[in-house]
Simulated assay, not measured.
Amino acid sequence: MKLNSIFFYIVLSILIMPFQSNINGYDKNGINIDEQLGKYIPLNVKFVNSMGKEIVLKDLFNDKPVVFAFVYYKCPGICTPLMTELAEVINKSTLEPGIDYRVVVLSMDERETPKIAAAKKKEILNLIDKKIAPDSWEFLTGSYNNIKKIADATGFHFKREGTQFIHTTSVMFLTRDGKLSRYLYPRYRKSSGFSILPFSFKLAVIDATKGNIIPSVGKLLAFCFSYDPQGRTYVFDILKVAGASTILTVGLVILILVRKKKST
């Protein structure tokens, strides 16, 4: 192998190093999302909806894709802003819930009840300007074991801390047969909450409808922002960004020197 080729692979390795530890949304608190694109979640798992009715997950996966997120209804931090933004993007999107897709949120807290889920559902659905069928957005609760099955299948890792949870977040898009098609990482600002682009949302639903598997392109958010369990929010991680920038600069300098040497 030529010398410049060796240097090229060295530089390439250096450039991707800072992203490797965070490629699946990893942060210093060990809370991450380990993407399981192309894999299927178990659909034979039972949960309880906001009406107190026990359902099998496969009943929600029949003729349309599912937009899915882990939350908990008494979350003091990022869960309500996420659901609020989902309601907002539903208002803006030309696609219709209940017709083009179904939304499902699942509480990670096994102690939450259908009554709590019903109260949160009423709060969130009141934010939607469109007239939608109640079953087009399901608010589920369930046992610890069943919640864990879906969390493991989707690669969603969280940790209880007292009465609350340390967790990150993502909106997941699944095909009608339960295959993970895409993970969408909404932008977050403490002052204004989450932001989901209607265009990105629409494309994700369309891809899930077609059964396409789409790699995440918003992973820089997970790299630049870490979840702060004290503030229950995301914070800009300047050390990670500065470190990556330094390594990137060094890599580019090496590449330039190699090319100059070749030209002389």
Score class of each variant (00 low, 15 high):
Asp228Gln: 04
Leu3Met: 07
Ile41Asp: 03
Val11Phe: 00
Ser245Ala: 15
Leu82Met: 13
Leu203Asn: 04
Asn62Ile: 08
Ile78Gly: 01
Cys79Trp: 07
Asp100Trp: 04
Ile41Lys: 06
Leu60Glu: 05
Val105Phe: 07
Glu110Gly: 05
Asn145Trp: 10
Leu252Ala: 13
Val48Gln: 05
Pro97His: 08
Ser13Trp: 07
Ile55Val: 05
Lys240Thr: 01
Ile14Gly: 09
Ile213Glu: 00
Ile238Ser: 02
Arg187Pro: 09
Val235Lys: 04
Phe173Trp: 08
Met17Tyr: 09
Asn32Gln: 15
Met108Ile: 15
Val171Ser: 03
Asn4Pro: 10
Lys159Thr: 10
Ile23Asn: 00
Phe223His: 03
Asn145Thr: 01
Leu174Tyr: 11
Asn91Lys: 12
Tyr227Ala: 08
Asp237Cys: 02
Leu12Trp: 05
Ile16Cys: 08
Ile206Met: 11
Ile132Pro: 06
Thr233Gln: 03
Asp109Asn: 01
Arg232Trp: 14
Ala119Asp: 15
Gly155Gln: 01
Lys179Ala: 10
Trp137Tyr: 14
Ser263Lys: 15
Glu161Leu: 12
Asp59His: 12
Ser21Ala: 14
Asn22Lys: 02
Asp63Ile: 13
Leu43Glu: 07
Ile213Met: 06
Pro215Trp: 00
Lys202Ile: 06
Gly178Gln: 05
Lys74Phe: 07
Gln20Lys: 14
Ile147Thr: 12
Val67Met: 09
Ile90Phe: 15
Arg176Phe: 05
Arg182Ala: 04
Phe201Asn: 02
Ile132Gln: 06
Pro114Ser: 06
Met83His: 13
Val71Gly: 04
Val48Lys: 06
Phe173Leu: 01
